[in-house]
């Protein structure tokens, strides 16, 4: 199917570089770090984060607000549930979809939302529900609620790693996205996050999942007259609920 063979293509690149044979493996420090050293790097990161947790939660919260997240800092899971219920009723969210992140074990919001008249669907394929049906549901939903896999204080970003129970689009199709962040998921910088993901890559024999979603506020555009409008193809509103004391 390839119209240009790999050898021809790379051969042409090589000639342009003035070489006649394939270049040897170049010396490049970040690629030299093997599994154990990468693990050590992550241990160092974790220790640094551990010592500065409270400060990082503040920074995350500030940066997230600057990115357009509506931030709620919830001292307890009850308060997180209360925020979500209030939001759902304010928005008249009748149809709610959520991911199957671990965090929902500690934050029992399904019943609370149902008690207020909402319908909650967990987006996780099983024998009873087809992918197509779930997609329809997500397309109609008024609100999508997810956990996160990491949060980055530097940029006010939630990072999601789609997998079983974590759809790519619960956080994308509904007009409102709510992300629940647990304290142990918060890292300081983009460098921290990529060090962690590289370790996952090295440990997973080259597999680190098929997808990684960085979300920093609502969807937006400035394509007409450089005027910023929030809510293009993705959510109009993005809410970040930071659980201050949840157990990891």
């Amino acid at each position: 199917m390839t119209p240009t063979s790999r050898d021809d293509f790379l051969g042409n690149v090589r000639r342009a570089l003035g070489r006649s044979s394939p270049s040897a493996v170049p010396e490049y420090a970040p690629l030299k770090i093997r599994r154990n050293d990468q693990r050590q790097k992550v241990v160092t990161i974790e220790a640094r984060i551990q010592a500065r947790r409270a400060e990082l939660l503040d920074r995350l919260s500030n940066e997230a607000s600057d990115r357009g997240w509506q931030v709620c800092r919830a001292p307890s899971s009850e308060e997180a549930v209360a925020y979500l219920v209030a939001l759902a009723s304010r928005k008249r969210a009748g149809l709610i979809v959520r991911s199957n992140h671990q965090v929902f074990q500690n934050v029992p919001l399904d019943d609370a939302l149902r008690n207020h008249g909402g319908r909650v669907t967990v987006v996780a394929t099983d024998r009873r529900t087809s992918r197509e049906a779930l997609r329809q549901e997500m397309g109609r939903a008024d609100m999508g609620i997810t956990g996160v896999d990491y949060a980055i204080a530097e940029t006010g970003t939630c990072v999601l790693v789609p997998r079983k129970g974590v759809s790519r689009v619960v956080s994308l199709l509904p007009p409102i996205h709510v992300a629940l962040v647990e304290p142990h998921q918060v890292y300081e910088t983009l460098d921290d996050l990529f060090a962690l993901r590289r370790l996952a890559f090295l440990l997973g024999r080259g597999d680190m999942g098929s997808y990684l979603s960085f979300i920093s506020g609502p969807s937006r555009t400035a394509d007409i007259e450089q005027t910023i409008v929030e809510g293009v193809h993705g959510p109009v509103e993005a809410h970040m609920v930071i659980l201050e004391s949840a157990e990891g």
Binding site: N12, T157, S210, L212, G234
Partner: peptide, 30 residues
């Protein structure tokens, strides 16, 4: 400081994933 979204794709969806394309193709152009 960062865009609303940064998306990183490493191949097609895994069998156990909830969604994502079944095929992933990368065209590299000179």
């Amino acid at each position: 400081e960062i865009t609303s979204y940064v998306t990183m794709v490493s191949g097609p969806r895994r069998a156990q994933d909830e969604d994502g394309p079944e095929e992933f193709h990368l065209v590299i152009l000179d």
